[in-house]
């Protein structure tokens, strides 16, 4: 889409677009270029000579069992967080969409957690699940569950999934509710005339009509759980015990900053970038189709 009426001249618009463009070049394009360059080169042990090695860093990456394991773990983690937070949010949104007393109150009380920082959500869950101070942890021990996520990797993964999903429910709730509200009442009325109610109405009418929202949220949630949960994981488990909660994001951080392996971490950054590009393209193709239909 373009405007028909425009202003003349190009000095003013050039000056207006310049700040945004400079920031983009210095903090986005240049670093991205460096990452690509770094991923194709390798430094010797003393950091003096840099050699072009083609795709060797990538070959190393994908033949490294630790990286492949971490990638698999990340997929599992992202799927669990997205499924859990979207499922709970959809359930709440369906009921918040009904004409009931106090819906404004319910809405506010379900929206505020949007503002909680991922790392602060971790503190909240420490108080519930920490083996020494956690309330739920004590309850679990009382009924004979051997609960200690500082030692048990599976439990640790569960803890970071719960804390990450909890924080994201609000965001999904806002979008699901908006999606439900944009469905014409006449459609819902017509369904009721046909006798579709409860679960059947949801499955055959509401859920299919929510498909664009669901797809949009799925992409957003995958990106959230892959990247924004770094703070949550760092505060709860630092990727441990062992490597049981080390997602790709935590691994980039550990390899690049803690272990100073720049070539390897550049290659990891490039892989993550490609992942995001793929998700974004997918999303825009889908949204584009939604608009034209």
């Amino acid at each position: 889409m373009e405007r028909r009426t425009i202003f003349a001249g190009w000095a003013l618009p050039a000056a207006f677009v310049l700040p945004q463009l400079l920031l983009t070049i210095f903090f986005f394009l240049w670093p991205a270029g460096e990452a690509i360059y770094g991923s194709l080169t390798r430094q010797d042990a003393f950091g003096i000579k840099t050699q072009f090695v083609g795709f060797e860093n990538f070959v190393d990456l994908f033949t490294d069992p630790l990286y492949v394991e971490s990638a698999g773990r990340t997929v599992l983690f992202c799927a669990a967080v997205s499924f859990l937070s979207m499922g709970v949010a959809l359930l709440l949104a369906v009921f918040a969409d009904r004409e009931i007393a106090g819906r404004g109150f319910y809405r506010t009380m379900l929206i505020w957690p949007y503002a909680v920082a991922p790392a602060v959500a971790a503190v909240v869950w420490l108080l519930l699940l920490h083996p020494q101070i956690g309330m739920i942890a004590h309850g679990l021990k009382a009924v004979g569950v051997d609960w200690d996520y500082k030692i048990n990797g599976g439990q640790a993964l569960l803890v970071v999934v719960l804390a990450s999903a909890w924080k994201q429910v609000s965001y999904n709730f806002i979008f699901f509710l908006a999606g439900l509200q944009s469905i014409p009442r006449s459609v819902i009325e017509a369904a009721r005339m046909d006798g579709a109610r409860g679960w059947r109405r949801f499955r055959t009418i509401l859920f299919p009509l929510l498909a664009p929202t669901t797809f949009f949220l799925l992409v957003v949630n995958l990106v959230y759980s892959a990247f924004d949960t770094f703070g949550t994981i760092q505060a709860l488990t630092q990727g441990g015990p062992g490597k049981s909660t080390e997602t790709l994001m935590v691994k980039v951080y550990r390899d690049g900053l803690v272990n100073q392996d720049l070539g390897g971490s550049s290659a990891q950054s490039v892989v993550l970038m490609l992942g995001i590009v793929a998700l974004t393209v997918l999303q825009f193709r889908f949204v584009g189709r939604r608009n034209s239909s």
Binding site: G9, F28, A32, A35, F227, D228, S269, I276
Partner: peptide, 28 residues
């Protein structure tokens, strides 16, 4: 609201950054 040289190039350059959240480019 304006037409100036490289306008669409500027637009796409800005648009492209959508795909580069700070997390994936931290080290560089």
């Amino acid at each position: 609201f304006f037409r100036f040289p490289c306008r669409m190039l500027c637009f796409w350059t800005i648009f492209f950054t959508l795909m580069l959240p700070v997390e994936v480019r931290i080290i560089p």
